[in-house]
Computed example of a mutant assay.
Amino acid sequence: MHPVIFNATLEEILNLVGTFAFAESGALLAVRKNYDIVGMAVLALITAIGGGVIRDLIIGAHPPVAFTNANYLWLALLATILTFFAHPLLNRLNVAILVFDAAGLAVFCISGAIKALAYGLGPLPAILLGTLTAIGGGVMRDILAQDPPAVLRSGSELYALPAALGATIIVIIAHFAVNDSLTVGLTAVFVFVLRLLALRYHWRGPRPRRASDTR
Rank of each mutant, 00 (worst) to 15 (best):
M1L: 12
I5Q: 07
I5T: 11
F6E: 01
N7I: 00
N7Q: 05
L10Y: 12
I13T: 08
L16K: 11
G18A: 01
F20A: 15
E24W: 03
V31S: 01
R32S: 12
R32D: 11
K33S: 06
K33P: 01
L43P: 00
L43M: 04
I49N: 03
G50W: 05
D56M: 07
L57C: 10
I58W: 04
I59W: 05
A61E: 14
P64V: 01
P64M: 05
V65M: 06
A66E: 10
A70Q: 09
A70H: 10
L78Y: 00
L78C: 13
I81W: 09
I81P: 02
L82K: 02
T83C: 14
F85C: 03
L89I: 04
L89K: 04
L89C: 07
L90E: 02
N91E: 05
N94I: 02
L98D: 14
F100M: 11
F100G: 00
G104N: 02
A106Y: 11
F108T: 02
C109A: 04
G112L: 06
A113M: 13
A113I: 12
L117V: 13
L124T: 15
T131W: 04
T133M: 05
A134M: 11
G138E: 01
Q146E: 11
D147A: 10
V151K: 00
S154G: 05
S154Q: 14
E157K: 12
A160E: 06
L161Y: 07
A177K: 14
A177L: 00
S181F: 03
L182D: 03
V184Q: 07
L186D: 03
T187R: 00
A188E: 00
V193E: 12
L194C: 10
R195Q: 07
R195E: 13
L199V: 09
R200K: 15
Y201M: 02
H202D: 15
R209F: 14
R210G: 08
A211I: 15
A211M: 13
D213F: 12
D213K: 09
